[in-house]
């Protein structure tokens, strides 16, 4: 299949006068683990509901492997979905729900499903009404990961999971990628996105503000450089392009932030007797806060 796993073109959703999603266009190539970030209310779930045909776009279109997303009977043969807030039929047991999902789904690897039930330590004999948030999420995750659907759409799938289960989740995502499945992961867990995603889109107030690979994101953003030196400080560092907020953090120690290619800064540093040099790349959290810091009102 040469079609992208997921394509949205000018996708827009308005609820009355409120624009929940404004002109979103993106492609997710097959085989990629794609992170979808944004604060609460940015339009992430609205986007996913339109990609799944649960909500109709006000304008624009979406395709799943070239199939119109509104043709759910065909498009959903190619995907599995974990909703943000999993609600299950309260009177069915976990095993019954997994059976229902497998019987009506796009094809399920039953042996792998049993393995996932073990790994996620899910007690499938209990009726769903007795499940905690995390256990409900596990049922949906097991059902989705056990499918051989080429696209997995996961909407904040780990918000209720404990750290052990979070680790199992990351393993399952990697195994899915190794099998060639595409993963579309909407999440608030930035370390999780950083750990598993190849590319990230950042949404704010219904608009796409960034879409880039993790490396590009880091390159676009400032790195923090700490230099230890003997004798005189490196001269003229403040004028070097890309270098900002140079500060003396101790005797013989400087810290500055660096945006873009490091070569000019390194040439400037060569003039001093540098003993140690540490470059810390920004975490996704810092990048994220850079985008939203002012909007969040901190």
């Amino acid at each position: 299949m040469n079609d992208p796993a997921l394509r949205a073109v000018h996708l827009t959703k308005r609820y009355g006068r409120v624009t929940a999603l404004d002109d979103l266009s993106l492609d997710v190539p097959a085989g990629e683990v794609f992170g979808f970030l944004g604060p609460n209310g940015a339009g992430k779930s609205t986007t996913i509901r339109m990609l799944l045909g649960l909500a109709r776009p006000t304008s624009g279109r979406a395709w799943i492997f070239g199939t119109d997303a509104t043709d759910v009977a065909r498009a959903h043969r190619l995907l599995a979905y974990v909703p943000a807030d999993v609600a299950l039929w309260p009177h069915l047991t976990g095993a019954e729900i997994l059976h229902l999902q497998a019987s009506t789904g796009p094809g399920t690897d039953l042996a792998y499903r049993d393995e996932l039930v073990e790994r996620f330590a899910l007690d499938t004999a209990k009726p769903a009404r007795t499940y905690s948030t995390g256990n409900r999420q596990k049922v949906a995750l097991v059902a989705a990961f056990a499918t051989r659907a080429p696209l997995l759409v996961l909407d904040e799938p780990t918000s209720g999971l404990d750290p052990l289960m979070e680790r199992e989740f990351r393993t399952a995502v990697r195994q899915a990628r190794d099998r060639g499945q595409t993963v579309f992961l909407s999440s608030h867990q930035l370390d999780e996105v950083e750990a598993v995603c190849d590319r990230v889109a950042i949404l704010r107030a219904g608009q796409l503000v960034e879409i880039a690979s993790m490396e590009q994101l880091r390159g676009l953003r400032r790195a923090e450089v700490t230099v230890s030196y003997t004798g005189a400080p490196p001269p003229g560092l403040g004028e070097v392009p890309g270098v900002e907020s140079v500060e003396q953090v101790g005797e013989g120690r400087l810290r500055f932030s660096l945006v873009g290619a490091p070569a000019p800064a390194l040439r400037a540093l060569a003039a001093a007797d540098v003993r140690a040099l540490a470059i810390r790349e920004p975490s996704l959290e810092e990048i994220f806060l850079d985008y939203y810091g002012t909007a969040a009102g901190r």
Binding site: V72, A73, R74, P83, L88, T104, P106
Partner: peptide, 20 residues
């Protein structure tokens, strides 16, 4: 009620048309 209670969401995400 199953739709607004979201129990139906998992079924609606299966390869099953709204008509069905």
């Amino acid at each position: 009620a199953a739709e607004t209670g979201r129990q139906l969401t998992l079924s609606a995400a299966q390869p099953v048309s709204r008509f069905r």
